[in-house]
Measured scan of single mutants.
Amino acid sequence: DYEVGESVTVMDGPFATLPATISEVNAEQQKLKVLVSIFGRETPVELTFGQVSKI
């Protein structure tokens, strides 16, 4: 299970290999909103559970 505030690594898509912090969890739809730090700015990205891995 994923929790808000948890650190994960993006495994898929254009942000693969980047660390991210979970900002929202939708367990019903198996989706997460995460904040990816790009060029010093936090960018919100919506991903599925399968696109991230716990650190």
Rank of each mutant, 00 (worst) to 15 (best):
D1L: 14
D1V: 13
D1W: 14
D1Y: 14
D1K: 13
Y2S: 00
Y2R: 02
Y2M: 05
Y2C: 03
Y2F: 14
Y2T: 01
E3V: 14
E3R: 13
E3M: 13
E3Y: 14
E3C: 10
V4P: 08
G5D: 04
G5N: 05
E6C: 07
E6I: 06
E6S: 07
E6T: 07
E6G: 08
S7Y: 12
S7K: 14
S7D: 08
V8F: 02
V8M: 02
V8C: 05
V8P: 00
T9K: 09
T9F: 13
T9S: 06
M11K: 09
M11D: 05
D12H: 12
D12T: 12
D12Q: 10
D12V: 14
G13T: 03
P14K: 07
P14Y: 07
F15L: 05
A16L: 04
A16H: 05
A16D: 05
T17G: 15
T17A: 10
T17N: 14
L18G: 03
L18S: 06
P19A: 12
P19Q: 15
A20K: 01
A20Y: 02
A20W: 02
A20L: 03
A20G: 14
A20D: 00
A20T: 03
T21W: 10
T21R: 12
T21I: 15
T21C: 07
I22A: 01
I22F: 00
I22C: 02
I22N: 00
I22Y: 00
I22K: 01
I22W: 01
S23D: 06
S23A: 13
S23C: 13
S23K: 12
S23Y: 15
S23G: 05
S23I: 15
E24Y: 11
E24A: 10
E24N: 07
E24L: 07
V25M: 05
V25I: 12
V25T: 04
V25Y: 04
A27H: 14
A27W: 15
A27T: 12
E28H: 10
E28N: 09
Q29Y: 09
Q29S: 11
Q29W: 08
Q29A: 12
Q30G: 13
Q30R: 13
Q30E: 09
K31S: 11
K31G: 05
K31M: 13
K31I: 14
L32N: 01
L32F: 04
L32W: 02
L32A: 01
L32D: 02
L32E: 01
K33H: 09
K33E: 06
V34W: 01
V34Y: 02
V34I: 06
L35C: 09
L35P: 00
L35S: 06
V36T: 03
V36P: 01
V36K: 00
S37E: 10
S37Q: 13
I38W: 12
I38Q: 09
I38C: 09
F39Q: 13
G40Q: 05
G40W: 04
R41Y: 11
R41F: 13
R41I: 15
E42H: 08
T43K: 06
T43D: 06
T43E: 13
T43H: 15
T43Y: 15
T43L: 13
P44H: 14
V45W: 07
V45C: 08
V45Q: 04
V45R: 03
E46W: 09
E46A: 06
E46D: 08
E46T: 09
E46S: 08
E46P: 04
E46Y: 09
L47Q: 01
T48C: 10
T48K: 10
F49M: 05
F49W: 08
F49G: 01
G50P: 06
Q51M: 08
Q51W: 04
Q51F: 04
Q51I: 03
V52W: 01
V52R: 00
V52M: 02
S53T: 11
S53P: 01
S53N: 09
S53E: 11
K54L: 06
K54A: 06
K54G: 05
K54F: 06
I55E: 09
I55W: 10
